[in-house]
Design a protein around this nucleic acid. Structure first.
Length: 263
DNA sequence: ATGGTTGACCCTCAA
């Protein structure tokens, strides 16, 4: 089974590219982030025409996550237990959705952007990650054999080699010790980054800013990850980042991350 | 000059 994750930066602007990607790579399940649309605006038809079922949550033009699958889509859960909200009044954002696809719970995650080290959004981000860790830990406590994939845009570069310049990011979001500790806490809860071993750095990235010619200059960040429970991690036989998808007109600023599982 | 791009609820905000 082949699963993947991709921050598409608007599903309506990118639908042709996304469906072409599914076909080209023969992907069974795709976790999508930043659909940037409401549920009624999601382009279901192109996916259904290719044999995929769609589960999506989107409240407005911000955020929005989905799971599309051609190997079953059961027990869809919007958000996760304890997921913090944002705003006035506080409300849940469309940043997490999961479904069981052929026995594997695929979780599509769009971790809040902390914006700045002293920004209120950073407090929200760290709280959100702490609660995600608790929920993820709970799934594993409940069933140590659970097959769960936490896939998405984490907005964290866990290691120095995951950014093109530590000097550039030192006073910015994504590399700060609290963010890295929040990511590590998920690993400590029993999850493994199943992509890094197959895509070693340095210089291996999943995101390149649209501005400043970051992509041609190879100045990116590795911030999109697939974390797996032990029972799922042992099934991983290959993983890759499809850098080709960052090329050309109409590219998202993120590249898709692909994981191959043994039957 | 310093966000040089992209996308969304036209337009400022978010990334």
């Amino acid at each position: 089974m082949r699963i993947a994750t991709w921050n598409v930066n608007s599903i309506r602007a990118r639908v042709d590219r996304v469906t072409a990607f599914l076909e080209r790579h023969d992907v069974d399940v795709l976790a999508i982030q930043e659909t940037k649309c409401r549920d009624d605006q999601f382009p279901h038809l192109p996916f259904e025409a290719l044999g995929y079922e769609v589960a999506h949550v989107g409240h407005n033009q911000w955020n929005g996550v989905a799971v599309v699958s051609r190997v079953g889509l059961e027990d869809v859960q919007v958000g996760f237990a304890g997921m913090p909200g944002w705003g006035e009044p506080v409300a849940a954002e469309a940043r997490a959705l999961s479904a069981v696809c052929r026995g594997v719970r695929i979780v599509s995650l769009y971790v809040p952007n902390g914006r700045g080290l002293d920004d209120p959004h950073m407090v929200y981000k760290l709280d959100w990650l702490a609660r995600l860790r608790d929920a993820a830990h709970g799934w594993l406590e409940e069933d140590p054999q659970a097959q769960v994939a936490l896939m998405g845009d984490w907005n964290i570069a866990p290691q120095d080699e995951d950014v093109w310049s530590m000097e550039y990011y030192l006073d910015k979001s994504h590399v700060s010790p609290p963010e890295r500790a929040a990511f590590q806490a998920v690993l400590d809860a029993g999850y493994t980054d199943v992509v890094r071993p197959h895509t070693p750095g340095p210089g291996t990235y999943t995101y390149w800013d649209y501005t400043q010619l970051r992509f041609p200059k190879r100045q990116g960040m590795r911030i999109d990850f697939a974390l797996a429970t032990p029972a799922l991690a042992e099934r991983v036989e290959h993983a890759e980042i499809d850098r080709e998808e960052r090329k050309g007109k109409g590219a998202s600023d993120h590249a898709p991350v692909i994981v191959d599982l043994r039957a």
